[in-house]
Design a protein around this nucleic acid. Structure first.
Lengths: 123, 123
DNA sequence: AATTTTAATGCAATAGTGTTGCATTTACAA
DNA sequence: TTGTAAATGCAACACTATTGCATTAAAATT
């Protein structure tokens, strides 16, 4: 991956953010005209592919991105994400990893766990 | 809710289906010209509101609908949904209810759990 | 430093999902 | 049978996301 303004700035935004960020969030956070809409999509795809960030599909169907903390050796995105109805923030609850038991015959590739309600700040 | 062709046919489709159905699925399953695209959306909203079906947001961000079995007294949609990468089916695993513990201060309204991979048929 | 390679970008167009407004129709209650 | 509100059709729109293609620029090569 080449070092470009878009790459570094977008990764920085996601890394420094407390919450996950959508494409729309990133677009409005980046300085006007730094890069095209489409470039943001492509940078995000690239960062996911490189394993620097991971995707979360929110309950509104929109993809959000979060930095991969502690995914150096292997990825573990089986944690829960929380979507607050009031402040709309989508956050990784890295320590909340649900346990469950699938019936025989299923093999797991990805997980997407989202819980919505009110976060501590809005509760 | 009034008894209309759209209402009954769409509810029947969802109830009789083994898997969850998206708007696109329903549109192509209904007889051509039975009703408008928009009507399907409105019927689906209505059925959710009436508590006859429930929503699942798939990992591609598309909303799928499943009939509510055993939700007569209260709703319990905290079960896992499985999205097969090969046959693309999204199914309710009614018996798989993950356990987890949220930190203090969160209050839960909805849950959306989707696991993707290979289902028993495609594995 | 100049050149080459190819990744990255911008722009325009397009696709898919879902929503809204408004006039019209229809289910059903009075 | 009539009146009313719910349901529908149609057109338009909003939002998220993707694709093709010509151009630009990062970094490897000479």
């Amino acid at each position: 991956m080449r070092k470009t303004v878009a790459n570094t700035e977008i990764l920085r935004l996601i890394t420094e953010s407390e919450t996950t960020l959508s494409h729309a969030d990133i677009k409005s956070l980046l300085p006007e005209g730094l890069c095209d809409r489409v470039t943001i999509y492509r940078v995000l795809d690239r960062l996911v592919e490189e394993g620097l960030i991971h995707k979360v599909v929110n309950i509104d169907g929109v993809v959000n991105y979060a930095s991969c903390d502690g995914c150096t050796t292997k990825h573990h995105h089986n944690h829960v994400h929380f979507n607050c109805e009031k402040c709309n923030a989508v956050t990784c609850l890295d320590n909340v990893e649900p346990t469950f038991k699938l019936p025989e015959g299923y093999s797991v590739k990805e997980m997407n766990f989202v819980i919505s309600g009110l976060c501590p700040n809005c509760n």
